[in-house]
């Protein structure tokens, strides 16, 4: 057997498996998105089978585009992803620079810092929404209760009492309402993914040219100029990659939404698809196709960037 043939043979299982995995379900989704297909309908039982006679053309797409939920989900998906990206990248750069230089206990700090990334998403969500963000029983509730008690106490104090009596009583925020639960998701995912950004930026900072920095010091560059003109450009590529990888991961964010927001109206695209899939498969499929398109826009940029470094 020639080398070429052997090489092709060795790749076959992986390629074949992924080909089936990608093509079969996706083409089914594509097909379902063009037919009327629901799981339960007493008046029109013929719609409950995925038959070609239920052809609806772009009807499902029109239905989805007209649905208020859809636009809310798109908007929310983008809002959540955008906020997470902004927070993780900003925090990531700052923390990476902070711990890039040697200091006592750096190894331990690194370990502490990376830990959130390995927490399973379901635990992450349950932990934050209950034990930390809960307005009464969580740390938030306890902290705000404590502050309020302290203020009440200080109101009766002599001399400074008048000052504290001007303070309002603090209200804890419920993170289970439609809008605030999106904030909760942003907080917990930022907590989980900032370590990822830090790790990548640190790896990249390690490869920063130290001689170039020394040359900049001799040229009279201060700390800010070094950051602005050397470090930030050096981090440009890793930042782009962190943004794109996270965008792809977070566009399909599911467990956190499911746990934090179930039933309260907050949703993103994957969650909306899940809701539609309870009955209206046609709409779920059309929404799925939109999600694929959205992810592809990001993926094309990412793949192009990765492809450049692939073979060298």
């Amino acid at each position: 057997m020639s080398k070429r043939k052997l090489a092709r043979l060795l790749q076959t299982p992986a390629v074949l498996l992924l080909l089936v995995w990608m093509l079969v379900p996706l083409s089914m989704t594509l097909y379902f998105s063009f037919i009327r297909y629901v799981l339960n309908n007493l008046r029109r039982p013929e719609w409950t089978t995925p038959a070609l006679s239920n052809w609806r053309g772009f009807g499902n797409y029109e239905f989805v585009l007209d649905a208020k939920d859809f636009w809310f989900a798109v908007q929310n998906s983008l809002f959540i992803v955008g906020s997470i990206l902004f927070l993780t990248v900003t925090l990531g750069v700052l923390i990476a620079i902070l711990i890039n230089r040697a200091f006592p206990g750096r190894g331990i700090v690194r370990v502490l810092l990376i830990s959130p990334f390995f927490v399973m998403p379901a635990v992450n969500a349950v932990l934050w929404i209950n034990m930390i963000l809960d307005p009464v029983l969580g740390l938030q509730g306890i902290a705000i209760g404590g502050i309020n008690d302290l203020i009440t106490l200080l109101k009766d104090a002599p001399l400074v009492g008048w000052f504290f009596s001007l303070w309002p009583t603090l209200e804890p925020i419920s993170f289970r309402a439609t809008q605030t639960s999106a904030y909760a998701v942003i907080i917990m995912v930022t907590w989980q993914w900032t370590p990822f950004a830090v790790l990548i930026f640190m790896t990249s900072l390690q490869s920063e040219d130290q001689q170039q920095k020394e040359a900049a010091v001799l040229d009279g560059a201060g700390a800010w100029s070094q950051f602005r003109f050397l470090t930030l450009p050096h981090l440009g590529r890793p930042i782009a990659i962190v943004v794109m990888i996270q965008a792809i991961f977070h566009l399909s964010l599911y467990a956190e939404i499911e746990i934090v927001s179930r039933g309260n109206g907050n949703k993103n695209l994957p969650y909306l698809i899940g809701e539609f899939a309870n009955n209206n498969i046609g709409a779920a499929s059309a929404t799925g196709i939109f999600a694929v398109i959205l992810a592809n826009i990001v993926a094309i940029f990412l793949l192009r960037m990765i492809g450049k470094t692939l073979m060298d």
Partner: peptide, 18 residues
């Protein structure tokens, strides 16, 4: 290789029902 990666980028929710 690039194609393999691209399968990773397919949103799972899109193929949930199939």
């Amino acid at each position: 290789l690039m194609w393999m990666l691209s399968t990773k980028m397919l949103p799972a929710a899109a193929v949930l029902y199939p």
